[in-house]
Design a protein around this nucleic acid. Structure first.
Length: 467
RNA sequence: UCUUCAGUAGCUCAGUCGGUUAGAGCAUCUGACUGUUAAUCAGAGGGUCGUUGGUUCAAGUCCAACCUGAAGAGCCA
């Protein structure tokens, strides 16, 4: 008789002791002696393994030969309270089918731990480890939390283009998109590449941000957010950068910078709380395995108020620290862009909690940010987090057509590339604000992982596009 | 892109002042064991010392270039 398959997570929740159940999953370990075998099976539904107990006398030693680490099984039997100490329940095996074997000589995952660097080389198999199972379950949950947060607040999920012909944000080097034969590129009279015959009839690239298009949507739908892939061709080799990453960009009409800050703070707290409420088993594993302060840090972030101060105040604190003998590698003065060491000092040493810095000098920020009356600063905001630095960058946007135009000119953004963006300031302009958050940066914080390549299934970095 | 560190068995690493046949733990295989918890115990097999070139009587070890990985910095999210 066929028994309906249960997910292991369901069995651990409902614990139908005495019932006949069926599970399907992959072998993590096998132990035992001549009389009895113990198989730990994981099906991805939870970090917990189901222990399957096999009476060797009944099945024969040969039957267990193909049951090795990595093999895929279907197991039926009675769910019983475990006689051993390591787990609450287990399955007394009555029927065992091997769907797929995994040759132990060549299967790259062993029972013992591996380094993250090694697991990156076998990214096709690393979801089968406890660590990456936990990370990817969390990744899913964070995506759900993001959509729930915005949906509950009346935001619309707005899809901005992946392929774009405008590079106006200046957010970084772009990947070019073309159908031209790179072996025979057509040049014009001046030796410049001619895009007339290219697919779009002009130069096109992968998006570095959906912000400008999200602003268009905010000017109609009121409150929107994007959540999609983003591409940067920067040669950045750090544990915090990817060439392909996912970004969340809310944009809200009538929000001033203060509303924007509140939204950012509420948003992060909502996501962190979601993880604590819905992924505790996985967090506990990551906490015990990699980062002993993870859960404590997550709990603390949802409790404290983020510090809010202006760039000018931040620089004053840093200047005072220097006067008191604190050494920094880079000089600090009003007008300087803050280096990572400066941000870290403010967050980790001075305030010891998340910090939102606002009102930066206009020279070090983008053309679209709203200018303050002092003529020197813009209504930018960066949310700085312990361990990972800048997790959010945002601003109130310049809604004044004339001021925006002047700023675009000063920063050499051609009008012809952003005529559609400028139009929003000509037709029914409104104060509005928004921010961008790198999804994998949030993942770093929530999982406690230390390298961004370990919070995305298949990382894209310079010289690496395997899988 | 810059700086620093690393690359030796399937994995994680040791290898002293350049000198005999390159070692360990885990994994794998064989055997033992009446309920194991990263099971335990005994034994066995397993090496292009990242690549190329150089110095030397002699190179895993010294030098150079390159490749790969990591950390920090820059750029940013």
């Amino acid at each position: 008789m066929e028994i309906k398959r249960s997910k292991i997570s369901e069995l651990f929740t409902s614990k139908p002791i005495g019932e006949k159940v069926n599970i399907k999953g992959w072998v993590r370990t096998k132990r035992g002696n001549r009389q009895v075998g113990f198989i730990a099976v994981n099906d991805g539904s939870t970090i917990k393994n189901m222990q399957v107990v096999v009476d060797i006398a009944r099945f024969g030693e040969e039957a267990l030969k193909p049951v090795t680490t990595g093999a895929c099984l279907s197991v039926s039997g009675q769910l019983v309270a475990s006689q051993g100490g390591g787990q609450e329940i287990e399955i007394q095996c009555e029927n065992l089918t091997v769907y797929g074997t995994a040759d132990p000589q060549s299967y790259p995952l062993q029972k013992k731990g591996h380094t993250m660097e090694y697991l990156r080389e076998i990214a096709h198999l690393r979801p089968r480890t406890n660590t990456f199972g936990a990370v990817f379950r969390l990744r899913h949950n964070m995506a759900i939390a993001i959509h729930k947060f915005f949906h509950e607040r009346g935001f619309y999920y707005f899809h901005t283009p992946i392929i774009t012909a405008s590079d106006c944000e200046g957010a970084g080097q772009m990947f070019q998109v073309t159908t031209m034969n790179l072996g025979e590129i057509k040049k014009d009279g001046n030796g410049a590449v001619s895009y007339d015959d290219d697919f779009f009839g002009k130069q096109a690239s992968l998006t570095v941000s959906g912000q400008l298009e999200a602003e268009l949507a905010a000017m109609a739908l009121g409150a929107v957010y994007t959540f999609g892939p983003t591409f940067r061709a920067e040669n950045s080799n750090t544990p915090r950068h990817l060439a392909e990453f996912w970004m969340i960009e809310p944009e809200v009409a009538f929000n001033e910078i203060e509303d924007n800050m509140q939204l950012a703070e509420d948003f992060i707290k909502y996501c962190v709380k979601w993880a604590l409420d819905n992924c505790y088993d996985d967090l506990k594993f990551l906490n015990d395995m990699f980062d002993k302060e993870l859960i404590e840090r997550l709990n603390s972030v949802i409790k404290v108020d983020f510090v809010r101060l202006t760039y000018t105040q931040g620089v004053e604190i840093l200047e005072k620290a220097v006067k008191d003998g604190r050494k920094f590698e880079f000089p600090i003065y009003w007008g300087a862009d803050l280096a990572a060491e400066h941000e870290r000092y403010l967050v980790e040493e001075h305030f010891k909690r998340p910090v939102i810095l606002t009102d930066y000098p206009k020279e070090i920020k983008s053309f679209y940010m709203k200018q303050n009356d002092d003529g020197k600063t813009v209504r930018a905001m960066d949310v700085l987090f312990p361990k990972i630095g800048e997790i959010i960058g945002g601003s109130q946007r310049e809604e004044d057509y004339g001021k925006l135009l002047r700023r675009a000119d000063e920063m050499h953004v051609p009008h012809k590339d952003i005529w559609w963006y400028l139009d929003t300031r000509r037709f029914g302009t409104a104060p509005h604000s928004g921010f961008g958050l790198g999804f994998e940066r949030l993942m770093l914080f929530v999982t406690g992982m230390s390298n961004i390549r370990d919070v995305i299934p298949f990382p894209r970095t310079p010289r690496n596009a395997e899988f």
